[in-house]
Lab assay of single mutants.
Amino acid sequence: EALDLGTCKAKKKNGEPCTQTVNLRDCEYCQYHVQAQYKKLSAKR
Rank of each mutant, 00 (worst) to 15 (best):
A43Q: 09
Y38K: 11
L24H: 12
V34N: 13
K9C: 06
A2V: 10
C8N: 01
K39E: 14
Y38V: 15
C18V: 00
Q35E: 14
A36V: 11
L41G: 12
C27A: 13
L3V: 10
N23L: 07
A10E: 03
E28A: 12
A36Y: 03
T21C: 05
K40W: 01
T19F: 03
L24V: 10
C30E: 02
E1Q: 07
V34E: 03
L5C: 09
A36I: 07
E1S: 02
V34H: 04
E16W: 02
T7D: 01
K40G: 12
A2K: 14
E1M: 02
L3C: 00
K13W: 01
N23R: 12
A10P: 00
Q20S: 11
K12I: 06
C27I: 06
K40N: 15
L5D: 06
L24P: 08
C18G: 01
L24G: 15
D4S: 05
K40R: 10
C27T: 15
L41V: 10
T7Q: 06
A2T: 12
Q37L: 07
Q20F: 00
T7A: 13
T21I: 08
A2W: 01
V34M: 14
N23V: 12
Q20T: 14
A36M: 11
Q31F: 02
Q35L: 06
Q35Y: 03
K12Q: 10
L41E: 15
E16P: 01
S42P: 15
N14W: 00
C18K: 01
K13N: 08
K13R: 08
D26S: 09
A10L: 02
K9P: 02
A10W: 07
S42C: 07
C18D: 02
A2N: 10
C30L: 00
H33S: 01
E16H: 03
Y29L: 13
Q31D: 14
C30S: 02
R25M: 09
C8G: 01
Q37V: 10
N14R: 01
T7E: 03
E28T: 05
L3D: 02
A36D: 11
C18F: 00
L24S: 12
K11N: 10
Q31W: 03
Y38N: 15
V22R: 12
E1C: 06
Q35R: 07
P17F: 05
L3N: 07
Q35T: 13
N23Y: 07
N23P: 05
K40S: 12
L5Y: 12
C8L: 01
C30V: 00
K9S: 11
Y38L: 13
C8A: 01
G6M: 14
A2P: 07
E28W: 03
K13V: 06
N14V: 04
S42R: 08
R25F: 02
A2I: 09
D26W: 03
H33C: 06
K11V: 08
D4E: 07
T19L: 09
K12M: 14
E1D: 03
Q31R: 12
A43K: 05
K12T: 10
A36N: 09
P17A: 06
A43C: 13
D26A: 13
Y29P: 02
K12C: 00
A2R: 03
R25I: 04
L3K: 15
T21V: 11
K12W: 06
G15E: 00
Q31C: 04
C30N: 02
T19R: 13
Y32W: 11
Y32D: 14
P17L: 06
Q35M: 04
L24D: 14
D26T: 08
E28N: 15
Q37H: 02
L5V: 09
Y32A: 15
V34W: 10
D26E: 09
G15T: 12
K9H: 08
Q35N: 11
H33Y: 01
H33G: 02
K9A: 04
K11Y: 04
C18M: 00
N14G: 05
A10I: 03
K39D: 15
T7C: 06
G15Q: 15
E28F: 04
Q20A: 14
N14S: 15
K39S: 13
T19V: 08
K11H: 08
Q35W: 02
Q35S: 12
L24I: 07
S42T: 07
A36G: 11
Y29C: 06
C30R: 02
Y29F: 09
C8Q: 04
H33W: 00
V34Y: 06
S42L: 06
N23G: 11
K9I: 06
A36W: 03
K39T: 14
H33E: 03
L5K: 09
L24E: 15
Y32E: 15
T19D: 10
C30A: 02
Q37A: 10
Q37N: 14
D26N: 14
N14L: 01
K12G: 05
C27W: 06
Q35F: 04
T19P: 13
E28H: 07
G6Q: 01
Q31G: 12
G15S: 00
N23W: 07
Q20E: 14
V22I: 01
K40E: 11
H33M: 02
T19K: 15
C27F: 04
T7M: 13
L24F: 09
L3Y: 05
Q35H: 08
Y38P: 14
Q20C: 05
K9N: 09
C18P: 01
C8R: 00
K13C: 02
K9R: 03
Y29Q: 12
Q37Y: 04
D26L: 07
D26Y: 05
C30I: 00
C30M: 00
K39A: 13
G6D: 10
Q20D: 08
A2Y: 03
A10N: 01
P17R: 12
E28I: 04
L5F: 13
E1L: 00
A2D: 13
C18E: 06
Q20W: 05
C27D: 12
N23D: 14
L3W: 04
